[in-house]
Write a protein that binds this DNA or RNA. Structure first.
Lengths: 162, 162
DNA sequence: CTCCATATGTTATTCTATAACAGTTATGCG
DNA sequence: CGCATAACTGTTATAGAATAACATATGGAG
């Protein structure tokens, strides 16, 4: 559980930009960017890692923004539905989207050492999977692509002499 | 929750073959294919669909093979670790592998209508994702690829006139 | 103002998963 | 054989993830 993206950068910048993008998107689409929703996105952006719903809920509770699970889940549902965050199925956790607005099929690189998560692009509907689906008569609407492995930092720690 | 593979076939056959393959693999690798493990694989093969750990546990309990969650989870862990079954992260459920022995990177087609799951091949480590990982210095060890959509049957039901 | 949609608050429950420890069986080795 | 050890099972307890159901508030649209 550490920085992220696997490359150091200014978190404040990406947080500020992402919040601004979310504000703009909500204004444009008449979406209700309420305090709870805003705060949850801030938490995800600030944590800059995959966070469990209950971890987020703890903070909301401390801040008087809601004490029960549905409060957190509703906000997370909103963020996911609007592309501001993604769910990492493998971790049962959520992470802020690092490039919203861009239409994308997200793929994730999950480090099994430090649980850091990087978001990448992938179009699984094309390529082998798409072909297999078509052959089976299956219509792909959405895809979960999550690679588990080791990030540069953890690889370096594990095998310093390589 | 229905048949599977999206194509009708003789379940008895695939069940018998898969059990035989598991027996052989365990014998060859000195793995302990105990009654609980055997029974859980049978259940997965017989159900021929993604099954929750607690659904399996219910049956084990009825049959006097174990009443507590760890019993089911341990057996499932064994089956997954040895390639006899896979976990469907999206459903928090487990499914028997339809072609064990073959080394493979499984990908799944999950129907959101009936929850049927078909197993396909995919090599996400190649292609776009592999390139992105390499660029990030990330070493992929394993990947979860799950496509959500509609199977032929559910597509037909939903849009009979298409 | 009233109705309706949207969002929040709360209770309760279900499902998923694992930690921790106790007992039991199987196996290998001296 | 007898013992040590590893592997497996049994059980208790708890943590974590998710949602159903219903109550309340709030903010427009007509």
């Amino acid at each position: 559980m550490d920085p992220l993206g696997f490359a150091p950068h200014d978190h404040r910048d990406c947080k500020r930009e992402a919040m601004a993008a979310a504000e703009a998107h909500c204004a444009r689409h008449r979406l209700n960017f309420t305090p709870v929703r805003r705060r949850v996105l801030e938490l995800l952006l600030g944590g800059h890692r995959a966070m469990g719903a209950y971890e987020i809920l703890d903070t909301l509770r401390d801040e008087g923004l809601g004490a029960q699970p549905p409060v957190a889940y509703r906000a997370l549902d909103f963020l996911v539905a609007n592309g501001f965050a993604h769910k990492i199925e493998r971790l049962n956790a959520f992470i802020a989207c690092t490039h919203p607005e861009t239409s994308h099929t997200p793929a994730f690189l999950i480090c099994r050492g430090c649980n850091a998560v990087a978001e990448a692009h992938a179009e699984p509907a094309r390529g082998m999977l798409g072909a297999a689906a078509e052959a089976a008569g299956f219509e792909i609407e959405q895809a979960v692509v999550e690679a588990i492995g080791r990030c540069p930092r953890c690889r370096a720690e594990a095998a310093p002499c390589r």
